[in-house]
Nucleic acid binder design. Structure first.
Length: 437
RNA sequence: GUGAGUGUAGCUCAGUUGGUUAGAGCGCCAGUCUGUGGAACUGGAUGUCGUGGGUUCAAACCCCAUCACUCACCCCA
């Protein structure tokens, strides 16, 4: 082994997709695509690179700062690799604001990168399905998004007890904090950060942190009471007319009426990291403790398009990450074997038959869309060629030796059994088409 | 960036209180079998024991450093 050889591993936190991995990925994406296109969503695609400023303003400190891959291009422009898709799609919408017909239903499947320490369910590069609605202020847009999520889960045969859609509302959260807890507007963000982490830290640490922000003991107790209350009870605690409360109760009413409520629950601790969310926020969790990270995350954002244009258009959408979702599917044994596609026909070679004969045969099959390849070495023994075919996952081997050539026949050998059949050359394609799969 | 764990054949791993030539299973290659695969049997190849230093008569094993990977924290899909 040469020490000077380059490493074969992919860059830290990124994955190579070998053919087998692509079988899975294509299967997974095509199922998601089928669902969102069923809801009349249109696909778009944006560049991997965006101007740095697109993320600097709205994405949240951590993602825009530490986790952003950014550099100067040769012209001295500050460039970032996208850490998420939402600002890009907002840019697309803003650029054609005047000519687009709203509301828009758009989706994209693309890779994003964040500079972080790789661990279970979190890599530096992952593939994300991004689904958004632009220009629909109605709560029905929320309903549609939740409906798409549940249908995606249903498409993968996920049972209701395998996942939970946890819903909150940023406006509601702020109203509760400022009205019920009398927290200053400027402290809402700090407290939302702490609340966001509540589930992942110890009780003591949680209380200590809250105290540091200036929350008194009775306020902390009140916050605990809020967490142990259901949505109706919290709404009753508010004295002002809360738009967020109205949105939430209307949404849950609709979820109930449409039967989607069994997948959903109100969760006051869901606030989400991105600064741009303004209304409904939600995350989807695997109920298995083995896979603790959120599968989907999203919400409503009112001010993202206005970053690019004076006029504003509201948006709501979600991202679905492939890494955690794969863990979800594996953990629940929801990946069928049949997604790993096999090859179809291998044409075996004999040294005393000219290769042009084999090409003629192959062309007959290619022309009727039978996946076919010709063995390269004419001198390998038939046994070796069959072993190769079996290992590679071919279903059929065509045998055309001097005997068959003389009689203008070929032999089709079925690899999943021990049977074979000899037919006339011009019946070959038809016979193979009869073979299932 | 902080903390913990793991690094031995292509893969999964064993390797005793430090003791001669480094082990297994799977996989790979060849043969038994010159026009018939999966099974069986026989044989074969493959290791800077992550890297560098130290302790010792002697290191895969002990110590230090370093790198890589994994997990957790932070943040997020």
């Amino acid at each position: 082994m040469n020490k000077d050889n380059l490493p074969v591993r992919s860059y830290k936190g990124t994955r190579d997709f070998y053919p087998m991995d692509m079988c899975y990925r294509n299967w997974y994406f095509s199922k998601v695509r089928e669902v969102v296109e069923g809801f009349c969503y249109e696909e778009y695609h944006t560049p991997l690179l965006e101007p740095y400023e697109v993320y600097a303003a709205k994405s949240g400190d951590e993602v825009a700062g530490e986790q952003l891959y950014c550099f100067e291009d040769k012209g001295g422009r500050k460039i970032a690799i996208r850490p998420e898709l939402t600002p890009s799609v907002a840019r697309l919408v803003a650029a054609r604001l005047e000519e687009l017909t709203f509301p828009l239903r758009w989706y994209s499947i693309a890779n994003v990168m964040r500079y972080e320490k790789p661990q279970k369910g979190r890599l530096r590069e992952h593939w994300q399905v991004n689904v958004d609605i632009f220009g629909a202020d109605e709560i029905e847009a929320e309903l549609e998004i939740i409906s798409i999520i549940s249908r995606i889960m249903h498409t993968f045969q996920a049972k209701p007890d395998m996942f939970r859609i946890k819903i909150n509302n940023r406006k509601f959260f702020t109203d509760v904090l400022t009205d019920v807890l009398k927290v200053k507007n400027t402290d809402v963000k700090t407290i939302s950060r702490i609340v966001d982490k509540k589930a992942k830290m110890s009780q003591e640490k949680y209380y200590d942190w809250l105290k540091e922000t200036g929350l008194t003991q009775d306020k902390i107790e009140l916050l605990d009471k809020i967490f142990s209350s259901n949505l109706e009870e919290i709404i009753r605690m508010i004295h002002i007319d809360s738009k967020g409360a109205n949105e939430l109760s209307r949404l849950f009413q609709l979820l109930d009426e449409t039967g989607l409520l069994r997948y959903c629950e109100f969760d006051f601790s869901i606030v989400r990291g991105f600064d741009y969310y303004t209304g409904t926020v939600f995350e989807v969790y695997d109920t298995s403790p083995e896979n603790r990270r959120s599968l989907f995350g999203g919400g409503r954002y009112d001010n993202l398009v206005s970053m690019f244009k004076q006029r504003n258009i509201s948006g709501i959408g979600f991202g679905l990450g492939d890494v955690t979702f794969q863990h979800f599917l594996e953990g629940n044994d929801l990946i069928p074997d049949k997604i790993y596609k096999s090859q179809q026909v291998l044409i075996a070679r004999f040294p005393d038959v000219p290769v042009s004969e084999y090409f003629k045969l192959a062309e007959d099959l290619w022309s009727v869309h039978v996946k076919t390849s010709i063995y390269f070495s004419a001198h390998d023994k038939l046994g070796k060629q069959l072993k190769f075919a079996e290992k590679k996952g071919y279903s059929l081997v065509i045998i055309l030796g001097v005997d068959e050539l003389k009689e203008n026949k070929i032999t089709i050998k079925y690899l999943d059994s021990t049977t074979q059949v000899t037919v006339k050359r011009d019946e070959c394609a038809g016979k193979i088409k009869e073979f299932p799969g």
